[in-house]
Design a protein around this nucleic acid. Structure first.
Lengths: 294, 294
DNA sequence: GATCAGCCATTCAGTATTGAATAGCAGCCC
DNA sequence: GGGCTGCTATTCAATACTGAATGGCTGATC
């Protein structure tokens, strides 16, 4: 009924994540009775029961679980606000970057190393996630992603193109040999997605990319790559990365999936010096990395 | 330094939008001294000056303006949370829809009329905006848009395809006649974008869509349509809509720009009954509308 | 089965926050 | 220039909120 004080949302999120009033109180640096009262107040304001009390803690109702993502969105925005409030003097402050697990784990570290070397007072937070919506959820300031940004509020720069082709480890090829045909996979193992993401869907070289064609499936690109490296099977990998890792091309010309590499940030952040600094460093570093493929 | 209480963010946003402590206090149902203290506390916590006090009100510093979008994101999430907290019994509650100005102003009203007729206790909020990121900013629950959703957290359903072709009013054609060639526009006026959005960019039928080719420019699709209707010039319009409005096709087969129509919502909201209700009604209504073109 | 750890609800004193009232200031209109 | 309006800063009493302490409860552990 009455719109609740924002503090109450924070309390709700803390209780949901900690699982108890006491835990939430510890996390927020407050007392357990306070949290209890705040949750009660929120329930009264919204007119909905949020938790069923139990001696082991609070069990969230279905209603509370539905509210959770919204409270998390608030928390993400609050964190972004605090980051944005850091005075923007040269090469100082916090910048939060998101990238896929593979890119963040392989390509970015050397780029960030150089950046930190040049700007020791710059703090970097790296969020590895395969969700493409981190920026708009304000869970990061800058994103490295493999798709053109479609949202108007985002400012992006294309840093190059990168083909995904098929690769396997040298050991795997030694054991199983090169497959002769893309369609005939007998005797071979193909590593791929559990849930095929939208950007990867479709038909490539008469090869319908769908769940069923994969013999070993994971939605983590990191896990996929690790399995390819370990000789589990054949899988897709970006060419420059495969080259760096010493993987062996499979059916070299039969399969190619082009991707665009982008560095993206909020329009809001364009004016910030440190954001620009990191943005430009990422653009430059990725350009170099992608051009190594030639 | 210390991370501020969320109430302070709310105070910040209120002062930014109202322009004064007193105004913000009225808006929030609090007193002016309270708001003054909260802003002071926020400045102390963040270590940044947010406003310069003046007898006419508070003038935000550059820092405060940079924080504003984040605070707005929090407010949007809070509003979405409150909406989500409304008990989800059949055909009751609030649903917030976003669409472009033209679609929201022409296509949706009859659909929503029927929906309301069938569910009198359902409340509809319609946000007309040409920003494509409303959903992720949680400024709306359901979006009608002309592009495939690319973000993972969104659930979308394609309701059909709609071609954009060139049209003009009957009066305009009477005065200026039909142009004979797409490239030769002498004696004709072309209505289009000021800032060409990403989805409309590119080359269509050897026709590079860019700012310079337009003689009358607006970023509001509503204004564009109004100008076409008023006989200002030739412009792009979706075929079924143009048909409904009685516009005259121009260079009928020379120019065609295909668009997909989608209804999109958050994955989170899929389980909500009233969201489903509105979602399905929009899908059905738009399907009918788009099929009228055949 | 007794002990212990962890949790929530309640009480009560202390504190921190709030708001009404007031003073002071700048700009606008007659 | 006088009167008016709207704004901020400050004071002070009243209120609301907080947290330490306590009791009661359940479930795990030995």
């Amino acid at each position: 009924m009455a719109d609740p004080d924002w503090t109450l949302y924070r309390a709700l999120l803390a209780v949901l994540t900690e699982g108890s009033l006491s835990g939430a109180a510890r996390a927020l640096g407050q007392s357990q009775p306070t949290l209890g009262r705040q949750i009660a107040a929120l329930e009264a304001d919204l007119g909905v029961a949020l938790f069923t009390r139990s001696p082991a803690g609070l069990i969230p109702t279905e209603a509370a679980l539905e509210l959770r993502p919204h409270a998390q969105a608030m928390a993400a925005a609050a964190a972004a606000l605090v980051r944005a409030a850091i005075p923007d003097v040269d090469g100082q402050g916090v910048v939060r970057i998101t990238a896929s697990e593979v890119v963040g784990g392989t390509v970015l570290p050397p780029i960030l190393a150089e950046l930190r070397e040049a700007n020791p007072r710059l703090q970097i937070e790296l969020v590895l996630s395969n969700r493409n919506d981190d920026l708009l959820r304000r869970e990061a300031d800058i994103a490295v992603r493999m798709a053109r940004p479609t949202q108007g509020a985002l400012y992006g720069r294309k840093v190059g193109e990168s083909e995904v082709r098929l690769f396997a480890s040298a050991g795997y090829i030694q054991k199983h040999g090169q497959p002769t045909d893309l369609m005939d996979r007998t005797g071979h193992t193909v590593v791929g997605f559990d849930h095929v993401p939208a950007y990867a869907g479709g038909v490539v070289a008469n090869f319908p990319i769908m769940r069923e064609i994969f013999d070993v499936r994971s939605d983590s690109d990191l896990a996929q790559l690790a399995m390819i490296q370990a000789g589990v099977g054949i899988g897709g990998c970006q060419v420059p990365l495969a080259r760096r890792l010493g993987l062996v091309p499979v059916l070299a010309d039969a399969f190619s999936f082009p991707m665009e590499a982008w560095v993206v940030m909020h329009e809001d952040l364009k004016t910030s010096r440190r954001m620009r600094l990191v943005f430009d460093a990422l653009v430059e570093g990725l350009r170099v990395f992608l051009s190594e493929a030639d």
